[in-house]
């Protein structure tokens, strides 16, 4: 059997009495895009920084590309790309200089591939990083994470701050390198950001892995808030007792509902009235988890 790209065995990290990560066991294969989801402060960044040997585990171990995360840290980093969530880049450098610097530290990179990435992501390499917006700095971070054709790419909240077009180019890139055999490990606190690209998703909360499943299975259980605005007031009874719908509040022409799984019943009930607008309220990942907590308790 070949080595998994990421093989985490009961990895734990404590800061004094605070358990940042508890007994994380997880295996991600090469060629796989893995979405690592959890609310802020759940332990995503802790896990990623443990994998990169920036911080050291209290217990447990991790293997990346078949190598020990602590002993073989340098060899692992040679074949790994990393994008931190709180991306701080030397503001005095231009984006191009930053790529040159890290390229040199990596012993040179394929410049044609790198320049192709710069074009695809839409990074202006001549601009000083100080003058770039968060989204544009993130582009520089993405290019440096992929420019040496890593076998493992670890991306912490890669899409936050990116505009939708760049986000699409980025997800295309993720799928492409995974198709080429690389493993992409990406964290997010928003399911919709990773569901298009990820094969499997792991959900972490309060330092513990809650579940690992395919995106399709998770969306079946996902909880969403929908806001419906009608052209006139609607009766509350029309939205009572619908299949998969809970927590309905009807306020004149506004209906606010929580939907688990398919919104079919709600949409059919709404179709009887004249609908002015139908929009999802931002899905908090906490809500996606609710189903799991209910099952667990």
């Amino acid at each position: 059997m070949t080595d998994a790209a990421v093989n985490i065995d009961r990895l734990s990290k404590r800061y004094g009495a605070v358990r940042a990560l508890t007994d994380l066991t997880l295996r991600v294969e090469s060629g796989e895009v893995f979405g690592f989801l959890g609310p802020n402060g759940a332990g995503k960044t802790t896990t990623i920084r443990l994998l990169l040997d920036l911080i050291r585990p209290t217990a447990g171990r991790a293997e990346l590309l078949g190598m020990d995360s602590r002993r073989d840290a340098v060899a692992i980093r040679r074949r790994t790309g990393y994008l931190p969530s709180e991306l701080a880049l030397d503001p005095r450098l231009t984006a191009g200089e930053l790529l040159d610097y890290y390229g040199h530290l990596r012993g040179g990179v394929d410049t044609a591939w790198r320049d192709g990435l710069v074009d695809r992501i839409g990074l202006d390499p001549s601009r000083r990083l100080r003058t770039l917006s968060t989204g544009n700095r993130k582009k520089a971070g993405i290019v440096q994470a992929f420019m040496h054709r890593p076998d493992l790419v670890i991306l912490d909240e890669p899409t936050s701050g990116l505009d939708p077009l760049v986000q699409r180019a980025f997800l295309d890139l993720v799928r492409e390198v995974a198709a080429g055999g690389a493993c992409v490990f990406l964290s997010s606190h928003v399911l919709t950001e990773v569901e298009d690209a990820a094969d499997r998703v792991g959900i972490i909360r309060a330092g513990e892995l809650v579940t690992v499943d395919t995106v399709a299975a998770l969306t079946r259980q996902a909880v969403r808030h929908l806001v419906l605005r009608f052209t006139g007031p609607v009766p509350a009874e029309a939205f009572a007792g619908l299949d998969g719908v809970s927590d309905v509040t009807v306020d004149g022409a506004l209906v606010d509902a929580t939907v688990t799984g398919s919104p079919d019943a709600l949409v059919k009930a709404a179709a009887r009235f004249e609908l002015a607008d139908l929009s999802p309220r931002d899905t908090e990942l906490e809500d996606v988890f609710l189903a799991f907590y209910r099952e667990a308790s």
Binding site: V74, A75, A88, L89
Partner: peptide, 14 residues
């Protein structure tokens, strides 16, 4: 403290 050491230490340099 600024945070840019993170990415530097993720390069293949001990």
């Amino acid at each position: 403290e600024r945070g840019d050491l993170d990415l530097l230490l993720a390069q293949p340099v001990p």
